[in-house]
């Protein structure tokens, strides 16, 4: 059940991300990243790593460009955010907000770093950081709305059933 929900969530996230234009702000929420970060937040670095790998892989295959870059950045972001897992109280509403803000920034930084290594044409300058900041803020605002249903599903009995 767990895996089914997990993959269904990934598919829904991809479909949503590619179908909806949010607020004409020039930025799209990265639901897949949110999924990685929340998984890492709830289960720790290795789950972050694993989920990051799977989601990164799917995203790479869907985008079809620079395959591996999303695996790498999502894995690392999931792992690093997961390091905080043992120390935080997960039911505080501020935790997902801060997690998504920091995680998005971290992911953006990793993407720019590894992207420049693999040859993605990045227009360096103030704009790129502002864009990441906007996305981080946007994710921070979205966090409580996404985290509540996510957490409820995560702790529900049927989600944790084996079959």
């Amino acid at each position: 059940m767990r895996y089914f929900v997990f993959f269904a969530t990934i598919i829904i996230s991809i479909v949503l991300q590619s179908s909806i234009s949010f607020f004409n702000l020039g930025i799209q929420p990265d639901f897949l990243l949110i999924l990685v970060l929340f998984s890492a937040l709830l289960e720790g670095p290795f789950t972050g790593l694993k989920v990051g790998f799977v989601i990164g892989l799917v995203e790479d295959l869907v985008t079809g460009k620079f395959i591996g870059i999303h695996i790498l950045t999502k894995m690392l972001a999931g792992y690093l955010i997961g390091l905080g897992e043992p120390k935080i109280f997960k039911e505080n509403y501020l935790v997902p907000v801060v997690t998504l803000f920091i995680g998005t920034f971290l992911h953006g930084f990793l993407f720019l770093f590894f992207g420049s290594i693999v040859g993605i044409d990045i227009s360096w300058g103030k704009d790129i950081w502002v864009r990441i900041l906007y996305l981080a803020l946007f994710h921070g605002v979205l966090a409580p709305f996404v985290y509540v249903p996510f957490y409820k599903i995560y702790v529900s009995k049927w989600f944790n059933k084996d079959s």
Partner: peptide, 20 residues
């Protein structure tokens, strides 16, 4: 490995993999 793969699968590719 990932960086190498990413580097070699840039913007333009002649053929997509079966999985993609």
């Amino acid at each position: 490995v990932l960086l190498t793969v990413a580097h070699n699968t840039g913007l333009e590719r002649n053929k997509l993999t079966f999985l993609e």
